[in-house]
Structures are given as C-alpha cells and as structure tokens.
C-alpha cells in the first residue's frame, strides 16, 4: 500500500477554491452537500481550511490575478493531496480562453489528478469523479 492510498483510505475532506469561476460550478459543489446528494454519506466533507483538506477542488478559468493565490493554495495543501479541476473553464479555459486576462487553465499552474468537464458539471458528475479517482490511486 503506497502512502497516497493509505492517506486516502478513510474519509476524504474536500476544500473548494474558486479561481475565477462564474459561480455555477461552486453552487454545484455546494449542492453535493445538500440532502438530495449528500456526500457526507461517503464520509466526504467540505472543510473551511486548506490545512484540513485531502482534495482541492478548483473551478474557474484562472484569471491573471488568481495565479499566485492558486499556487500558494496548492503549496498549503497537506500531502498526500490531489487537485480536481471542476468545469469546462478549469479543464480547458472554455469560453474564456481567448480573454486578455486568461492565465489558465488550472493544469498550467498546479498538477491536476482529475478533470470534470461540463458547464456546469452536475453534482453526480463531481461525486463520480472523486469516487473514480479514489479507485485509480
């Protein structure tokens, strides 16, 4: 059993970071919490501090000004930790990739373990991505 697998054996705590998203992906991430989808039944929990998190969910197209913040957030993520890019913007830049202020996508700045495309991805897709990722580690 490698360290990553060992570290992810129990409940996953998730931190969510908005790096220039339109809010849609963020609401869908929060929606995972609500009674209809209820990620807590898998032991997953949205936490308020990066220091407590195993998984960093990043949404948004990463405008220029967020780049240092994103890198700092990744450096604060305790290892072993993984980054998941949520939404079309975080995966590729989406509709914003031609913008003058665009500095992304996410994987240009931090290593990304899984991509969840969609504008916005449905809560089922987000939960599915985390579960699939766990199987791959």
């Amino acid at each position: 059993m490698n360290a990553t697998k060992w570290g992810f054996k129990k409940s996953l705590w998730v931190f969510h970071l908005n790096a220039g998203a339109c809010n849609n992906c963020d609401i869908e991430v929060l929606d995972c919490l609500c009674p209809k989808f209820d990620i807590e039944r898998f032991g997953m929990k949205l936490v308020g501090s990066l220091k407590h998190a195993d998984v960093l969910l990043v949404s948004g197209s990463v405008p220029r000004r967020v780049v240092p913040d994103l890198i700092e957030a990744y450096e604060q993520l305790p290892q072993p930790g993984v980054v998941i890019a949520i939404g079309a913007c975080a995966c590729t830049g989406g509709i914003f990739k031609d913008g003058y202020n665009f500095a992304g996508p996410v994987d240009k700045h931090v290593p990304v373990a899984a991509y969840v495309p969609g504008c916005p991805p449905r809560p089922e897709a987000i939960i599915g991505a985390v579960v699939k990722l766990l199987g791959k580690l």
């Binding site: 509709i95 031609d98 665009f102």
Partner: peptide
Amino acid sequence: LGRIHRGMELLAEE
C-alpha cells in the same frame, strides 16, 4: 475587486 475579472466586455466584441 478583480480576482475573477475575465475580460468579458472585450471578449464580447469578438
């Protein structure tokens, strides 16, 4: 402000 400034007004012109 400014962290989610994506330059939409300029994008719209294209």
